[in-house]
Design a protein around this nucleic acid. Structure first.
Lengths: 360, 360
DNA sequence: TTGTAGGCGTTATCAT
DNA sequence: ATGATAACGCCTACAA
């Protein structure tokens, strides 16, 4: 509970009043240390020339008082807030998590705090957030979409650095960090080829999205180089659901009974596929190898057998985005207009890799 | 890209310089409108007595200049930042998502921005964040743990309202909002009883955690009232994994072959259980009904059959926590030291509910 | 080596 | 009805 007067606003405290314990300012520290406010500032920021004894006295006074510099006042005069915002349309969805982790990796080292704004796919909300962030004078903004698409630039005051993630701005001069879906598809394809599979099918999400199309293109290019055709003669586009995975697997096996590998556009789809295979008494990876996409741990690891899957490296995407943003804030011009982060392959058992137990 | 001098700090802009477009202040608006800064403030905030014509002129000037009030300056003088922080130990995990959604539900209406801080279960990190938040003068803090346990109070300046979520503070005077796991367990139990099941088993997570114990207690109390015993004669405590669900289901069926319902401590466990049941040619819900816990949509809905599951109502927990925090900030004393949010049951097919298609 | 004063952008009080 | 001015808390020239 603990409520007491801790603010300095002239309006004073409007709540129930308790002991009036003002939060200490440089002035209080100065009085206690028997010096002036200027000296306090210098002592606490290691600036200027000060006698060691004085500095120590000030530091001690600050410590005794529990002095915390007011970041608002500091920012007001420095013009830097050490604050950035992440605007996500993702409804705090699962893709946002690794991304945020990466962002914090990069930002945490720099004492930068993060405003999290969820637009819930509502342009009104987004605009509202953009305005608020303007007013708060954030140093920079990361705009994260969950799909590869082009979106209008964030309506924000000119001059605030913005980095787009996955969904890129329609303004070609804006900078964007994104995943490598073509590369991810190719990775899966090469892995299956290396495992000796030659009849590879592909089941994925909606064709109207760019992401699944790119993944399919990556796979296709690898098959082309190997002189192979897609099992079933087509990409099975559908939905991002387990159920689609189940149904599409039936279709694929019906069209191409000799299929010996299936690359899936998501781990959810892959789970559905694996379930159908099990129902049909087909062994994974014995008869058919399966590769997923996302490396969504609980989905992929919980699968039986555990799923080999393409990890789009979202955490790294977040880290890169934040790093570039910091660069822009510092004034270092970032080169290029889009940076693509390579995907990598998480090897589990669904493609026949036998993981060696380090214990044995 | 767009980088220009937009800050007012005396240090000036250290980056590459472009057109020097200062961000407009009340002063600029005042000049353009031909009035004084005080008048601008009144006009823009609808305060004091002003001629309508003047007000309009000021508003127009502000609009023309793209004026955005500097929130830092406002906060400095008002003592309110309209900013709260959510500190989570959850590594941005999945439980944090619905929680954050609820928090934003409550906060969004009030123009309050959210700092998101992830401690990654590291007390050092937590302390560091607490200090930063102190300096930023946030109006309040929500501390969210992912498990029901007692934790030391957040080391933060006295006077900042703090609401704990799920994990409660060891200081009994601190306020906490949490889930109703006993109630959730009871809900599951009553539902299964109502479905005519009388041999109900329970498979759940580690016994050392309070959450699974409470869920088990809730189920047990319902069984007691009905004069029934737990199928298998014990709660099957284990891990939060599908694999444990698979193994435990074998054990339970071995111990009590007449089991006709299984309540699982998580949706992941439930998926494992369902898989084992399918392998054994047992129909769900025909032979055995299954109830999960979490209502983790992709897990529960992707299951075949879709999983009836207890929804711990995390979004509501977040909403309540934020609402109470706003109350505390406003000075309204919150009553009680813990508020428990009721769980509810998401009905799907794994307990025999036949969902009526609204189309037909 | 230390103190003084001005300003960051805004709001509120008190003159006018 | 409007203007001038003093805070809010801090930092940094510049003066002492």
């Amino acid at each position: 509970m603990s409520g007491s007067t801790r603010r300095a606003g002239r309006r004073g405290w409007k709540g129930w009043s308790t002991v009036s314990q003002r939060v200490p300012t440089v002035r209080d520290v100065a009085v206690r240390a028997g010096v002036s406010v200027g000296t306090v500032s210098k002592a606490l920021n290691n600036r200027g020339q000060l006698r060691e004894e004085t500095r120590a006295r000030v530091v001690a006074a600050a410590r005794d008082l529990g002095f915390r510099p007011n970041a608002l006042a500091q920012s007001l005069q420095s013009g830097r807030t050490y604050t950035v915002a992440v605007i996500t349309t993702d409804r705090f969805g699962r893709f946002g998590n690794p991304l945020m982790l990466g962002v914090e990796d990069a930002l945490g080292a720099d004492r930068v705090s993060v405003f999290l704004c969820d637009t819930r796919d509502d342009p009104i909300r987004e605009h509202h957030h953009a305005q608020t962030l303007d007013e708060r004078r954030v140093d920079g903004i990361i705009v994260a979409g969950r799909r590869k698409q082009t979106r209008p630039p964030l309506a924000v005051a000119s001059g605030v650095p913005v980095v787009y993630v996955i969904a890129q701005s329609s303004d070609p001069s804006d900078f964007c960090v994104t995943t490598d879906d073509v590369g991810g598809g190719a990775l899966a394809g090469r892995h299956l080829l290396a495992a000796g599979r030659t009849h590879i099918g592909h089941i994925t999400g909606p064709e109207r999205f760019a992401d699944p199309r790119e993944r399919a293109a990556g796979l296709q290019s690898v098959l082309d180089s190997a002189g192979l055709d897609l099992a079933g003669g087509q990409v099975f586009y559908g939905e991002w659901s387990e159920d689609w995975g189940r149904r599409a697997a039936e279709m694929l096996l019906h069209a191409a009974p000799d299929t010996d590998a299936i690359f899936c556009g998501s781990d959810q789809i892959a789970r559905g596929v694996v379930e159908t295979l099990r129902d049909r008494r087909l062994r994974v990876p014995g008869d058919i190898a399966v590769v997923g996409f996302d490396n969504w741990e609980p989905m992929a690891a919980g699968c039986r057998p555990p799923l080999t899957t393409v990890d789009p490296n979202l955490r790294e995407v977040g880290r890169v985005a934040a790093t570039r943003l910091l660069d822009m804030i510092a004034g270092t011009p970032v080169q290029g207009s889009t940076e693509t982060v390579p995907a990598w392959l998480m090897l589990r058992e669904s493609t026949g890799v036998r993981l060696v137990d380090p214990q044995s």
